[in-house]
C-alpha cells in the first residue's frame, strides 16, 4: 500500500463545511479546536475557490522534525499521529506546519496552551483500539473499522477524497479527463463534466 492521503478538489468544493461538521461530530471535538476547516479564496466573487484543509499527513512532516519531545510517529500506512501523554504543548509543531493543522485547546486562564490536537486521519492514536481512552484523546478509530475518514466520506460533492494516495490520484485523474474546459471556466460542467455529445453523422467519404 502507498500512503494515506487527502486530496481536495477545488473545482467541486461548495464551502458547505460538511467536512468540518462531520469531523467535529465524529470525534466530539471541543469548542475552539478545528481539526479541519474550509479555506476560500476570492470569497464572494465569481469563480471563488474553496478547499478543505487539515493535517496532510506529510511524507516528511515538519512537525515530526521540530518536536522537542518526539511525540510524533508515522504508521505503516503513512498516517502521522502523536502521543498526547508526552506532548508539552510548546507549539513548535504549529509554527512548523505549513497548513496550520496542529490545534491547541485554550480553556484555561492566561491563554493556557493545552496538549496539541490534530487530524488523525480517523486512525485514533497510541491507545488500545476502540478504547475509551483512545476516543477521549484522539477520537474515533474508523481506519480500524475498515472505514475512511468521516470528512471525506461525508463530502456531498466528493470534493474531498481520502485514502490510498495512488487510488485517489486515479479517481482525480479520471475526473480531470472527464471535465469540460473552454468557455465554461467554473461551474457544473467543470466540476462534473459535460454531458455526452454524440458526433454528428458525416456523409460518406467526408474527411474528419
Amino acid at each position: 500500500m502507498a500512503r494515506m492521503k487527502f486530496l481536495a478538489d477545488a473545482e467541486r468544493c461548495i464551502e458547505c463545511n460538511g467536512c468540518v461538521t462531520a469531523c467535529k461530530q465524529e470525534h466530539d471535538i471541543p469548542w475552539g479546536v478545528n481539526r479541519r476547516r474550509v479555506v476560500t479564496l476570492n470569497d464572494g466573487m465569481p469563480g471563488e475557490k474553496s478547499i478543505s484543509v487539515a493535517c496532510m499527513h506529510c511524507s516528511d512532516a515538519p512537525c515530526m522534525a521540530v518536536c522537542p519531545v518526539d511525540v510524533f510517529y508515522k504508521t505503516s500506512e503513512g498516517i502521522v499521529l502523536h502521543d498526547k501523554d508526552l506532548c508539552i504543548g510548546c507549539g513548535y509543531c504549529f509554527y512548523a506546519c505549513p497548513f496550520g493543522a496542529p490545534q491547541f485547546p485554550q480553556d484555561g486562564a492566561f491563554g493556557l496552551r493545552g496538549k496539541m490536537d490534530k487530524c488523525t486521519f480517523c486512525a485514533g492514536g497510541p491507545e488500545p483500539d476502540f478504547s475509551e481512552a483512545e476516543f477521549r484523546k484522539y477520537g474515533r478509530n474508523r481506519i480500524a473499522e475498515g472505514k475512511l475518514p468521516a470528512c471525506a466520506e461525508m463530502c456531498s460533492t466528493k470534493a474531498l477524497l481520502g485514502g490510498d494516495g495512488d487510488v485517489i490520484a486515479d479517481i482525480y485523474r479520471s475526473r480531470a479527463i472527464t471535465r469540460g474546459r473552454g468557455s465554461e471556466v467554473w461551474g457544473w460542467g467543470t466540476a462534473y463534466g459535460r454531458p455526452e455529445k454524440k458526433p454528428a453523422a458525416q456523409p460518406p467519404g467526408a474527411k474528419s
Binding site: D70, V71, T75, G124, P126, K147
Partner: peptide
C-alpha cells in the same frame, strides 16, 4: 531525527472486521 518516545500503537488489521454490510 529523534526516536519516537511514546507508547506503541496497535495496527488496524489486528481487529475483527465490524459486522457492517458496507465493509468488505
Amino acid at each position: 531525527q529523534g526516536q519516537y518516545q511514546g507508547k506503541p500503537d496497535t495496527r488496524p488489521w489486528d481487529n475483527d472486521p465490524p459486522k457492517d454490510p458496507s465493509i468488505v
